[in-house]
């Protein structure tokens, strides 16, 4: 459904992505792990054209694009099918929770307002915010804001949702509520590509884990492959650093 080939991206002299390949099928929940600066976030942002990749090729369903020369029309078409959940939520500060969710439906997709409100309410209900339709972002906690962010993505009924470290801006006690929501939508068969540091989520929910370092994919496989029997030295080192010694996996 989504295939990325040989994507490259530099910021000035700093090459962040050095030719990454990626392929995701419908219903996949793929988690990208890696140390900071490994290019995970940049990869995600390039897929949604929030950053302009220097070279590479992408196929989204029937749309084929070369990153060097993308047409505006294709960017727009792809964004209509890909949703994004931001690390710092990026809720529209001038709109209520419900308006945040319906904005893309009414304006981007030209769905009738009444219908959009229906969809929006359902999405907010799904993330446990039925009480907060009319709250502005400034009235919500970080965890609630991120749940609105997820509802905003889900409501678009996209082919895939990209999650860019959705819990790393949250206080520890709020991480759980967001992860629970993500687990629930994964169970419904939503295709997800998730950059996160939450190992538990990767282990429990992902069907594929990708380990990135230094702008390349070092290793990928099932959670079992990566966490229990990693092949690459760099993967082992990383996991040793982020997972405590006495942590055991039940897979």
């Amino acid at each position: 459904m989504l295939t990325i080939k040989n994507i490259h991206k530099s910021f000035g002299d700093n090459e962040i992505l050095k030719g990454v390949d990626l392929s995701i099928d419908k219903g996949d929940v793929v988690v990208i792990l890696g140390p900071s600066g490994s290019g995970k976030t940049t990869l995600l942002r390039c897929i949604n054209f929030l950053e302009k990749a220097d070279q590479g090729h992408a196929t989204f369903g029937t749309i084929d694009v070369d990153f060097q020369n993308v047409k505006k029309k294709d960017v727009h078409a792809i964004r209509q099918r890909v949703a994004f959940v931001f690390q710092n939520y990026n809720l529209f500060t001038n709109k209520t929770a419900l308006e945040n969710v319906t904005e893309g439906l009414v304006i981007g997709r030209k769905i009738a307002k009444a219908e959009a409100i229906e969809i929006g309410k359902k999405a907010l209900d799904k993330v446990g915010l039925s009480e907060k339709y009319d709250a502005y972002p400034s009235q919500l906690s970080g965890g609630q804001q991120q749940r609105v962010g997820i509802a905003r993505a889900v409501a678009l009924n996209p082919d895939i949702i990209l999650f860019d470290e959705p819990t790393s801006a949250l206080d520890p006690e709020l991480v759980g509520e967001v992860l629970t929501v993500m687990k629930n939508i994964a169970k419904e068969g939503t295709t997800m590509l998730v950059v996160t540091h939450e190992m538990g989520f990767a282990k429990d929910v992902a069907n594929r884990v990708i380990f990135m370092d230094g702008g390349v994919v070092v290793e990928e496989g099932s959670p079992h492959d990566i966490f229990v029997s990693p092949k690459e030295e760099r993967t082992k080192k990383f996991l040793k650093r982020v997972i405590p010694e006495d942590y055991t996996f039940y897979i």
Binding site: H76, A83, N90, F92, G104, I107, G108
Partner: peptide
């Protein structure tokens, strides 16, 4: 991020500027 969020939910650049 406000602009990024707007285009990520499918608004065009112009719509993002005008509405957000």
């Amino acid at each position: 991020g406000q602009f990024e969020a707007a285009v990520s939910v499918g608004l065009t650049r112009f719509q993002a500027y005008r509405r957000i």
